[in-house]
């Protein structure tokens, strides 16, 4: 169940942000994507996830072409994303955020199955080792690290096949960074495709199996992490 993108192109007005990006991402591997600001890293992730429509090229998950699926459908197929800004609704409860967009409901009126969601949330947070004072508290009352944990827990809640992470450690303290990296390792062990966009080279060399450097909307280099070094990656980014 590998993820594959072929000849992805994306344009914002006159600026071509993705210029025919092609890559495949294997199960049970962590691929880090690095590059300068404006290189197209986040745009690539958001195009795979469905925030930006695919204008040209294809996104495939295994045998399935998901290029034209809406976000909701892509999530159903097992693609989840952790956003740089976390995409949390901060006045709502932890449970409401964990289940945002895929609530457990009784049909036909869409009545929320609050007890079930709460039980699943408790189990999921416990499995990930995340401690939250109360599931009913608004997310705004939690610390930055806890909010990050909620965003990651939400992405992992339905046992996704693909985990897209956009700067997941950018705003975290050192202790929280190591917890996040442990979650990424654990996702890899479970055989998930993990694609990590980050500026933090330390993170890359701690968890990634492969490093892609993007420049001006194209892939500049693509190597196993064992075949490169931080110095080489930096020189490729700034060259």
């Amino acid at each position: 169940m590998a993820l594959e993108v072929r000849d992805l192109r994306k344009r914002f007005g006159a600026v071509e942000v993705l210029r025919g990006v092609s890559a495949s991402f294997d199960d049970g591997t962590v691929t880090a994507i690095l590059g300068d600001n404006g290189a197209g890293k986040s745009t690539l992730l958001k195009t795979i996830y469905g925030i930006y429509p695919v204008e040209n090229g294809t996104v495939r998950l295994g045998d399935l072409d998901i290029s034209n699926l809406a976000i909701r459908e892509r999530r159903r197929q097992g693609i989840e994303m952790v956003f740089q800004d976390l995409a949390l609704t901060r006045q709502q409860s932890v449970v409401a955020n964990l289940f945002m967009g895929r609530e457990e409901v009784c049909r036909p009126f869409g009545v929320l199955r609050k007890k079930k969601m709460r039980a699943v949330a408790l189990q999921a947070l416990g499995k990930l080792g995340i401690t939250i004072p109360s599931l009913e508290r608004p997310v705004a009352s939690l610390s930055g690290g806890q909010q990050q944990a909620i965003a990651i827990a939400r992405a992992l809640l339905d046992d996704p096949k693909v985990l897209l992470l956009d700067e997941p450690t950018a705003a975290l303290a050192a202790g929280e960074v190591s917890k996040t990296l442990a979650l990424i390792r654990s996702a890899r062990q479970e055989g998930k495709v993990v694609v990590l966009v980050t500026h933090r080279l330390n993170d890359v060399f701690e968890v990634a199996d492969r490093v892609i450097v993007m420049k001006h909307g194209s892939i500049f280099s693509d190597r196993a992490v064992t075949e490169t070094s931080p110095a080489q990656v930096i020189s490729e980014i700034v060259s």
């Binding site: 925030i51 809406a70 976000i71 909701r72 892509r74 999530r75 994303m81 956003f83 800004d85 976390l86 995409a87 949390l88 609704t89 901060r90 006045q91 709502q92 409401a96 945002m100 967009g101 895929r102």
Partner: peptide, 17 residues
């Protein structure tokens, strides 16, 4: 409805139509 009012961008990113 509450998600949308709280952060429409986040709600959209999570697949709410």
């Amino acid at each position: 409805t509450l998600h949308m009012g709280d952060d429409a961008k986040a709600a959209q990113a999570l697949g709410i139509n």
